[in-house]
Amino acid sequence: MNAPVYNFAYLDEQTKRMIRRAILKAIAIPGYQVPFASREMPMPYGWGTGGVQVTAAILGPADVLKVIDQGSDDTTNAISIRKFFARTAGVATTTATADATVIQTRHRIPEAPLHGGQVLVYQVPIPEPLRFLEPRETETRRMHALGEYGLMHVKLYEDIARFGHIATSYAYPVKVNARYVMDPSPTPKFDNPKMDNCPALQLFGAGREKRIYAIPPYTSVVSLDFEDHPFTRYRFDAPCALCGADDSYLDEIVTDDQGSRMFVCSDTDYCENRQAQGHRGSESAAPHKERPHG
């Protein structure tokens, strides 16, 4: 039986060239959405087809790949993509943020600071920050070209008028390099400050919408706000129940149907590292304890 033989990292070389060109252009114009000829990938749209194509185009044999989904290294999506590249490119994989050279992510930026030489690849569902206010693509492109971003503040105004504060908590619009307004993909706004002046290269791939954009290393990224309603980060006001961290982004986990819940770090690698260093939270004394049923 003949097993199918794929090119290194699944995509053929001409496709990778095309994607690399788009990436180079995106890096040259920080925050600008570059159209590219997105390919069909062996996974459904919405599962990271854009991110996977960008990763495939930049991956080399010496790279070490980490894939996270909502901060976690061990959810279905993260494991599938990690296995996909382990099989098609034979690259080394890791869950440690510091050891990775390429990190593909869905909805989070790792807690551990990124360093120069690393590339963070985001999976993006909707690259256009103005989309829900201005449905015409021709018009939004013109607005980007002319730098007409008053409409973005209309969205923030609506938040304050309705909720008393800027209630947008993810996909919070940012201005890149004092020019283009960009959607940072659905990362929580907690992560927005990490994008500013980051030593790592940040690439964004939207497969269905066929767009690639980028933030080069050490580029200014400013979250939009009002003078009297400045940008604020948001996290649950609790320490992590496993590692006790009080500075990380937390997931809320419902533990029964009586209203009990616990908060744990969304970044599993960060949490495990802290536990290995001896940090303990309220729930971590007996991590394998099972409650009696019935």
Binding site: E148, V154, Y157, F226, D228
Partner: peptide, 22 residues
């Protein structure tokens, strides 16, 4: 803009010329 509030409709032009104080 039929989907955003009256206040934002009136304010949009102001925000477009750089007003940044809610």
């Amino acid at each position: 803009r039929m989907a955003v509030s009256a206040g934002a409709n009136v304010g949009e032009r102001l925000m477009a010329v750089g007003w940044n104080h809610y």
